[in-house]
Design a protein around this nucleic acid. Sequence first.
RNA 1: GGCGGCGUGGCCGAGUGGUUAGGCAGGGGCCUGCAAAGCCCUCCACCCCGGUUCGAAUCCGGGCGCCGCCUCCA
Length: 462
Amino acid sequence: MIRLHDSLQNQVRELALRDAGRVSMYVCGPTVYDLPHLGHGRFTLVWDTLRRWLSFQGLDVTFVSNITDIDDNIINKALREGRTEADVAAQYEEAWWDAMAAIGVARPDHTPHATAFVKEMVTLIEGFLANGKAYSTSDSVYLDVSTVADYGALSGQALDSLRAGARIEANEEKRSPLDFALWKKAKPDEPSWPAPFGDGRPGWHTECVVMSLALLGEGFDLHCGGFDLRFPHHENERAQAVAAGHVFAQHWAHNGWVMVGDQKMSKSLNNFTSLTDLTEKSDPRSYRLLVLRSHYRSPIEVSPATIADAVRGLERLDGLARRFELPVLSGSTLERASDHQLGPAATDLYERVSAVMENDMDTPAAVALVFEALTNAHAAADRGEDETARDLASGVAVILGGLGLALHGASGEVDATTAALVQARDEARAQKNWAEADRLRDELVAAGWTVEDSAAGTVVRR
RNA sequence: GGCGGCGUGGCCGAGUGGUUAGGCAGGGGCCUGCAAAGCCCUCCACCCCGGUUCGAAUCCGGGCGCCGCCUCCA
């Protein structure tokens, strides 16, 4: 079984499954009030990769990722633009799924919306009020974190130190600055849901704890998200679960952030770049390759140069697919290793990739192995060892399929005009009329084709 | 102030007490009519100072520099 870093125990340890052969994982999804940025792209790619790989190995993975469709940011945007909150959320949720499709992130098995679980959240909060773990103020209901024995365990901070570091707040109704809102009572013109403790809307932290437990049940296996969610979001989710007597996530995994320049890309720094922008301006697969080539817990740098670097890498991978006419795998569907026939060389590759993946999802090592196999496949083919070459090459395609990276082989249609130019060039070459052959090649290149000579003659692609 | 992380070759980015990471870029060669693609070879490295060790980029101590969380944030 895979070994993953667990933020709760602060060590790499085996992912223990509640039910043999089945993995239950929850990833905190987006609040849909703006276009997805590169940071969203990274976390979705990282956890999509884990999901895909576990499935690839034959595990039955239930993958849940929420949509937060009610929140201050959504309300503010709706107010500014004179629209309803539902309208804002719907627009950006659509943009979200479009972006996910573009970068090849598979749909989760469940995509709970916060607004569909308000009743359950109200029930949870009622319980806290009933047993004194929460208290109501004029504008909110707060969880009293002093009632949670090991509050701070996930973020590795003692309650005292958190208290010392807390910013001073104006709200004097809170018993402790660390207490967080479970419920925000409605202000005029704000959307609200009925509750015995005052109509209003749920706090962010309450949404995820309710939805993850509702869909995955007590003691589900794995809870994932970005490092910056560790505190307060995940800590507060966990606090509620503990306070309510639930067995919560058994393993917590966090991914590193995206750096633009030398700084974290984030909302507060206002330097985030749209994911849509990236996928429209370059091969969307480049971002997945970029993400795979660094460890999920390390920060990654995204810049035109690092994207261009990844694009070059993709060209090499696609070159293998062309040479060996490999099938296009992955994309919206999940691959299973057992669905593919692997020869000895590919089996060996798979075993070695599995070993590094089980070591805290070491995708950079996996990618390195894949590139080595790629070179070996070409080299074997050059030596005339066709069977080994084909075995390795198909292994590369299958492994990358398991990691969610699809290779693009021969690029489809060649129009009649182009086909005529190609034929004319081959005839000129046959007659050793190099000047004419070169002229025709220039013409093809000018029309946007990449021209390569093969044993079979001129080959063009876009 | 509390907690945590990082500093690797031209660039990106792994890694581990002794053995090639990998990619991109550069140089040379093979192949090719010439290219392209591909293959082979190759240059460039572990922030600084001590220490432990037969041996440290890898462990320990100190220093310098950088980043993050502690507030909405993936």
